[in-house]
Design a protein around this nucleic acid. Structure first.
Lengths: 143, 143
DNA sequence: TTATCTGCAAAGCCTTTGCACTTAG
DNA sequence: CTAAGTGCAAAGGCTTTGCAGATAA
């Protein structure tokens, strides 16, 4: 279960860095994992606010950064300049298909693609450890 | 030659949109194409400033947007949140290999990759018209 | 107790916009 | 002359940071 795993990863990270457990952070993590999709800091802030009305958006940002550090989340800078954060747990390494009209976001997992990426990196002597691919177009409903 | 082509594209766009020719804009275009690499607005602003000291960065931004509109340039939002603009002329459709350490930027052109992207889009009923891929890792000199 | 965590507001940073002036057509 | 282009400074929008009070250990 993603939640338990995420919680474990966060706790480990906190232990390693000698940070502290906090109820706000746990709540933010829980909501983030529950949503299980790409969220902006604002999205997450709104969700948390319904549970913890006094929370500040700075805490959301600080938590998201922490989640990225310990591998629970990944930050994506999209075309609109707004960062989105996506959970990595239970999602294999993937890319995105984005509809230019309705904004639909589809996760792609493709073996063949991964292989080619690796091949390209090798050819240029790169030691690959991350990548980002976004395909933009019109989805079947919008075209 | 990229410059002549870029100038032609800009002029056509200007004609179509009933805009006007301006010396600043031409100078910005010339420097942009001369650099022939990824530039931030700040980079380009500095370059132009040496030729036209009175120019404002707003004009650089406005020009870059125009170049993107007419297909001379493309805007890339990178991990650091700063937009970079790259010339499209004389460069086939390509992706990027980025070194996480030294920032080296390599353009990739790969037929096979393009095909797979198309295949993936088809599978999901998407009509693809754009994509962005960045592979992050360590280059041979940095690893 | 002590260092971390938090909310708040202020500051940062890149980018855009309003305005009055300039300039192309 | 008219509408687009420009520089400047101010405003925007997202994100980060400083600070004093709250909280975990």
């Amino acid at each position: 279960m993603a939640f338990a795993e995420g919680e474990r990863m966060l706790i480990e990270h906190i232990a390693k860095k000698e940070l502290r457990n906090s109820s706000s952070r746990s709540a933010i993590l829980a909501e983030f994992l529950k949503a299980d999709k790409h969220l902006t800091s604002e999205d997450l802030y709104k969700i948390i606010s319904t549970k913890i009305p006094t929370i500040g958006i700075a805490t959301v940002y600080r938590s998201l950064h922490l989640f990225c550090e310990c591998g629970i989340a990944r930050e994506l800078k999209m075309k609109d300049g707004i960062s989105r954060y996506e959970p990595l747990l239970g999602h294999e390494h993937h890319d995105h298909l984005v509809c230019r009209k309705c904004g639909k976001f589809i996760e792609i997992i493709d073996e063949e693609l991964e292989e080619i990426q690796k091949k390209i990196a090798d050819k240029h002597g790169f030691d690959l450890n991350n990548h980002k691919m976004e395909l933009y177009g019109l989805c079947s409903e919008c075209s």
